[in-house]
Design a protein around this nucleic acid. Structure first.
Length: 865
RNA sequence: GGGUGUUUAGCUCAGUUGGCUAGAGCGCUUCCCUUACAAGGAAGAGGUCAUCGGUUCGAGUCCGGUAACGCCCACCA
């Protein structure tokens, strides 16, 4: 073995081995209880970013541990076709050649996207492998696969037949750049400062005017009314009158509607039903016409008269000027409001009346909230359920049609002759109504999330009743970042409950977003994005995974510091070297893959085995609670500060003792082996490599999960460690070389210091100790203590008396402070009465110990000559 | 406007049924190349746990108010 760990060499070695051995297939544990996770499918033409790395690291920890625990553990991988995102990418590519998708035509364009998919889909697979994620590739899925497309068709038709999908004219969000409708959640609202323009609309009968306030003057071209609140005293007499819209001269009514906010603006609102959701509602209640004045390019339509053809923002300026010139503008004030942008391209979206397909969500809300409310499924951390509830309760119909080419084409056909709409999985041979008209299929495709929402069961073969579906559905855990709870989790819940009568997952583990060291969101445009593969190349995939998991406190964002990754890398080296040390004493390949604990361990062995047992129990508990950061931190600190810093040093001592060497070697082997197994889900590569060195046969990836050995710690271990630390500290404070052996006289009234104890003390504290009780004359000595054990140190020739005085004074001050604190508690009668007995006993013990210690220290100080 | 999160060591963060003498990594100081590891070892300095008030024998931890920063949602014409 090399003296230092080289991640690159090791990490290129194992993935293929795991795959060839079929480790990632649940069939490796044929009798195991099923356990399943479906991966949140990344965009097929994208690349994995650090957020994916976090997301998948968490899932891998869960699934690898379950596998080692003997479950038939399935982690199902796959990718999403990501409609708009992918289409945009390919279109951008075409644009470089001066082409648009229309130049290619629908079929050719789709072919083009498929070839992109072929190229980039493989790249994602490579990346998933590079980071060591243990997905079952034999079950890989893609949302546009035949099977998944069948599921989509099936769901669409079923929902349509149940009246839960309908086609209708509604106000939708239109992206003039992507040329498609968007759902509510694909619109990002950003706060902006705009102008609130107060415009005078004169009554047609010449009896005065009403002033309306708007942030979008250009929409006045499509106004078909002015609305006021029915209870608004200011406008009591105006309802029923008509006003003439400036510039275009149309005469429109003033209506009273409760949708109008009394407090806002002037209390009177211009009504543009074709370009505003509220206005559309008002128009429905008052039978007002809707006039489209902005087209799909965001230009003014012919209905806009002289402004025809202008871009909406140009038109805003032009109309403002025209109004001003003619004296219609009463006031312009700055106004803070939020403006919707396309989440894919950032273009300001245009609310627009449009004929689209919708999912009627209302009937599905209650059933999809119920599993969370009654505990059949739960969010971890739980607080996310409130967001989920609130969102579900305010849900409005979901616009699912997209004017794109890349995606599942809506399975609806229209008859040219009789206008019938036929919705069917298979293309109908003839019109089901008139029987003779020619049919044309709907051009639109479905929102990407329409197929993603079926992912947990469509990937398992639904609607067919497959073995996988029966065995692995519903899934056990869903791991996802909080930013797609609405997009994805809520909808999966809706569809899962609706079509399979069960929540599609039990535990919904929510994690945060990975941010940069300053807490900013990582993005390509800010240039602060950290590429996980650069990290993997430089530090190793294991280091990346360890660093991410160490920081993964439930539901919180993670600022990623390169120092953490560097520290994680050093940990890999540390483990590497611990194994190297072990192999100096334990024959390579001789450690059994499980069990093998010594029946009569030496004291130090018993101690580390007992600690290991405690750690395993606690580690399991934390992992079961999805507290990855705590779990990994626990194991990390145990490995480093207890096993490496203490046990390995103690092993060096006992290995010199022939009688103790055998169990020490045995313990060394199994403890390090168990550490490798426990760490394997977190850092799979280095542990696999080291397992190979230490255990030889088999793979840690397929090994069994460690269980506590049941050892208990020997007496005296705490005193031993404490006294060693005290000696080292004494040495450091007096600037004594660690190499200089110190003579000590030990007073050990309870005879705690057994021979093994004495050996360890001698070696680790570097002392020459005599166990004859206190010296006859304590004068000229100082001492360090641990429990009842005192070590007397002759000062002559070692330390100047005056240098020892402040050390003792400091120690006295510390002890006094603690004694005071405890005494104060005990002096409070309420404390003794109301605190639990064990807490009170703890304080009492502390007082006893501190008093004894203080007394010794004071004596010591007095005796210092 | 509604909701929600954060505020703990110089920096980045843990701290889940209230008992903490408040931890980790990095950084800092001192000593040590002790044959597993200098990507290391030993020892140490550094915190009125944002703030005010409350509950409690006891509060970083629970409750209420305030401030700053952040995020999400909203038919803010």
């Amino acid at each position: 073995m090399e003296a230092s760990y080289d991640p690159q060499a090791v990490e290129s070695r194992w993935y293929q081995v795991w795959e060839d051995a079929g480790v990632f297939k649940p069939e490796i544990n044929p009798d195991g209880e099923p356990f399943s996770i479906v991966i949140p499918p990344p965009n097929v033409t994208g690349v994995l970013h650090i957020g994916h790395a976090l997301n998948m690291s968490i899932q891998d920890v869960i699934i690898r541990r379950k596998r080692m625990q003997g479950y038939a553990a399935l982690w199902l991988p796959g990718t999403d076709h990501a409609g708009i995102a992918t289409q945009n990418v390919v279109e951008r590519d075409l644009a470089k050649e001066g082409l648009s998708r229309h130049d290619l035509g629908r079929e050719q364009f789709i072919e083009q996207v498929w070839s992109w998919k072929a190229k980039h889909g493989d790249r994602i697979k490579e990346q998933v492998r590079r980071l060591g994620f243990s997905t079952d590739w034999s079950r890989e899925r893609f949302t546009l696969d035949d099977g998944l497309s069948d599921a989509v068709g099936h769901v669409f038709v079923e929902l349509y037949n149940q009246g839960l999908i309908y086609r209708g004219e509604r106000i939708i969000n239109w992206c003039p750049r992507c040329h498609t409708a968007l759902s509510e959640i694909e619109v990002e609202h950003e706060n902006e400062v705009g102008e609130l323009t107060h415009i005078r609309y004169d009554f047609t009968d010449g009896s005065g005017s009403v002033v309306v306030a708007t942030t979008r003057p250009e929409t006045m071209l499509g106004d078909t009314a002015v609305a006021v609140h029915p209870d608004d005293d200011r406008y009591k007499d105006v309802t029923g009158k008509t006003v003439t819209i400036p510039l275009i001269g149309r005469e429109v009514p003033v209506v009273a509607d409760v949708g109008v906010e009394l407090e806002f603006g002037t209390g009177a609102v211009k009504v543009t039903p074709a370009h505003d959701a509220l206005d559309f509602e008002i128009s429905q209640r008052h039978n007002l016409p809707a006039i489209k004045v902005i087209d799909t390019e965001a230009n003014i339509t012919e209905a806009g008269g002289e402004f025809f053809g202008q871009d909406r923002f140009e038109a805003r300026e032009a109309i403002h000027h025209a109004l001003k010139k003619q004296g219609y503008i009463v006031e312009v004030e700055d106004h803070h409001h939020s403006v919707g942008h396309c989440s894919r391209c950032g273009t300001v979206v245009e609310p627009m009346l449009s004929l689209q397909w919708f999912v009627k969500v209302e009937p599905m809300i209650e059933p999809s909230v119920a599993p969370i409310k009654d505990g059949r499924a739960r969010f971890v951390p739980q607080r996310w359920e409130n967001n989920y509830f609130r969102w579900m309760e305010n849900l409005r119909d979901w616009c699912i049609s997209r004017q794109l080419w890349w995606g599942h084409r809506i399975p609806a056909w229209y008859c040219d002759a009789c206008d019938e709409t036929i919705v069917s999985v298979e293309e109908p041979a003839a019109c089901t109504s008139c029987g003779h008209g020619s049919l044309r299929q709907e051009q639109d495709v479905l929102d990407t999330w329409f197929s993603s929402q079926l992912w947990p069961f469509s990937t398992m073969g639904w609607p067919e009743e497959t073995e996988d579906l029966a065995k692995y559905y519903p899934t056990d855990v869903l791991v996802t970042a909080y930013d797609i709870i609405y997009f994805w989790v809520a909808r999966m819940m809706m569809m899962g409950v609706h079509f399979t009568d069960t929540a599609p997952f039990q535990d919904i583990v929510i994690h945060g977003l990975v941010r940069d060291a300053d807490g900013r969101k990582m993005s390509k445009s800010t240039g602060n994005a950290i590429d996980p593969f650069d990290i993997a190349d430089e530090y190793g995939a294991d280091a990346l995974r360890l660093a991410l998991l160490q920081s993964a406190a439930p539901g919180h964002d993670i600022p990623l510091n390169i120092e953490w990754i560097d520290a994680a890398r050093r940990f890999g080296n540390k483990v590497w070297n611990a194994v190297r040390f072990t192999l100096n004493h334990v024959e390579a390949g001789s450690v059994p893959a499980a069990g093998g604990y010594p029946t009569e361990p030496g004291p130090a062995d018993a101690w580390i085995l007992s600690r290991l047992g405690e750690i395993i129990t606690e580690y399991d508990r934390l992992l079961d609670e999805y507290r990855f950061s705590d779990a990994v931190g626990l194991l990390y600190n145990f490995a480093w500060s207890e096993v490496f810093d203490w046990y390995l040093e103690m092993a060096k001592t006992s290995l010199r003792d022939e009688a103790a060497a055998a169990t020490t070697r045995q313990t060394l082997g199994v403890v390090i082996r168990d550490l490798l197994a426990l760490f394997h889900p977190v850092i799979p590569y280095v542990t696999e490599e080291l397992w190979h060195e230490l255990v030889g046969d088999g793979l840690v990836a397929a090994a069994s999960w460690p269980i506590p050995s049941g050892n208990t710690a020997p007496t005296g271990i705490d005193e031993l460690q404490s006294l060693i630390v005290s000696l080292r500290r004494f040495r450091a404070e007096h600037g004594l070389s660690p190499k200089r052996s110190i003579d000590v006289l030990i007073d050990d009234p309870d005879a705690t210091a057994a021979p093994w104890w004495q050996d360890q003390f001698t070696a680790l504290a570097n002392v020459d100790a005599v166990y004859d009780g206190p010296p006859a004359a304590v004068a000229g000595h100082t001492r360090v203590t641990a429990g009842k054990i005192q070590a007397f140190i002759p000062l002559a020739g070692l330390v100047d008396v005056e240098a020892e005085r402040p050390r003792l004074q400091k120690a006295i001050a510390e002890s006094e402070k603690m004694l005071e604190r405890s005494q104060a508690k005990l002096d409070n009668p309420n404390f003794a009465d109301r605190a639990p007995a064990e807490v009170v006993a703890g304080e009492e013990q502390r007082v006893t110990e501190m008093s004894a210690k203080l007394e010794k220290l004071r004596t010591q100080l007095a005796e210092l000559v």
